[in-house]
Design a protein around this nucleic acid. Structure first.
Lengths: 212, 212
DNA sequence: AGATGGTTTAACCAAATGGTTAAATATCTG
DNA sequence: CAGATATTTAACCATTTGGTTAAACCATCT
């Protein structure tokens, strides 16, 4: 029995290779556009191995979702708890999301498509994580309101604003940069962005919530 | 020859029925998830009729895109030109987008998926329309900056913020409302939204851009 | 070395899918 | 009404796709 790897990590090396390939293909093509053959091929593995190691397409996709969205909620929670003032907490909240997106290029397309299809493929755990994240944001805003630094706003709406802006910007920017016919002036319309997209979002959202 | 309809409108009644069905299916399932048989079935038409009236899947999808995103750019342009002050222009800009989304439930999923797949299926015309829209926004912001009412920001980024927020909110809200296990407090986290989503976006974006 | 059992693979399969065809059915014109 | 043309349809087809199988491969233990 050569289960040494499985015993230690819970996942074999081959399984990780497959997951990584799948992440890429699902991100590029979406669930129904992704082909099991292509995933196997990109992982450098026979298709039967894929089925042996992981299971059917649904299971594979669930694994990818877990890999991509698995620990974001936790990271947000800890980062927020480290900050003190509501404004810092909100900035941390946004920064963690931006960092997650930055370190994971597959996140935006997968998440955008999930939202587009009403989160039908999202496992309950992930939805609960998201709910918890919004609850954290609600706490930050509530606190800020009490301390007189934030105006009254809907936390759910603000969360959509943060996520929507970051996801949309990440992808739209690459689309824009891909159009050879665009005049240079147009292409530089966001080069003046000071700092990361996350910082830009934080700056604008904080201004928007600022009590005068 | 019964081309009376085609001669007048350029599109027959059957073709419109098919386009409408296709819009729904593409919105729900995405390009690769959509099945020609289902579209034909939902249109109450034989599949061969679909091919006779419209053509292959690509052509059909192009038709849907045209139907969904066709005249948004134009509407934005005229609405903005009607307003006078930069703040009013920006509000009009946002309101038109929100109205387009509201009167067209298929727009958000289709657009989100397009962005997710790097706009690969978007015809050049549509991309040019979008570029024009951002140019309009750049004009508004530039004017506002000169008049000392707006801060310095990237128009492209602000456009992503507006689109991202509206699209994300529209879909995320329906996802949230579908989760029976969510506590009522969570579900009401955005019921306090004063007015439409568009108005909420306008309020926040204007606050964010406001020079103090 | 040989037996054991986990792992990989080439070949295979049934179902689904985009697209076509030839015949049937309306519709219009003279 | 008859002929011509436009439109719809049932049946069909080639290919793709998710998934399986039986045999080969390989690390380990005795």
């Amino acid at each position: 029995m050569r289960e040494r790897e499985k015993e230690k990590t819970g996942t074999t090396e081959v399984a990780l290779k497959i997951l990584k390939a799948a992440r890429g293909v699902f991100a590029e093509k979406g669930y129904s556009g992704a082909r099991m053959d292509e995933i196997a091929g990109r992982a450098g593995v026979n298709k039967a191995t894929l089925y042996y190691q992981i299971g059917d397409k649904d299971t594979l996709y669930a694994g990818v979702i877990h890999q991509v969205l698995g620990d974001v909620a936790g990271k947000i929670a800890t980062a927020v708890s480290m900050a003190g003032h509501p404004r810092e907490k909100l900035a941390a909240y946004i920064e963690v999301i931006d960092a997650a997106v930055d370190s994971n290029p597959e996140l935006p397309p997968i998440m955008l498509r999930e939202v587009a299809s009403d989160g039908t493929h999202l496992p309950r755990v992930v939805l609960e994580d998201m709910a918890q994240v919004v609850t954290i944001l609600a706490g930050i805003i509530e606190d800020g309101k009490k301390r007189g630094v934030f105006t009254e706003v809907s936390p759910f709406f603000i969360h959509c604003m943060i996520m929507g802006t970051i996801l949309m910007y990440k992808k739209a920017a690459t689309i824009k940069d891909r159009q050879p016919w665009l005049p240079a002036g147009m292409k530089n319309l966001d080069k003046k962005l000071k700092g990361s997209a996350g910082q830009a979002v934080a700056r604008l959202v904080l201004r928007a919530l600022d009590k005068q």
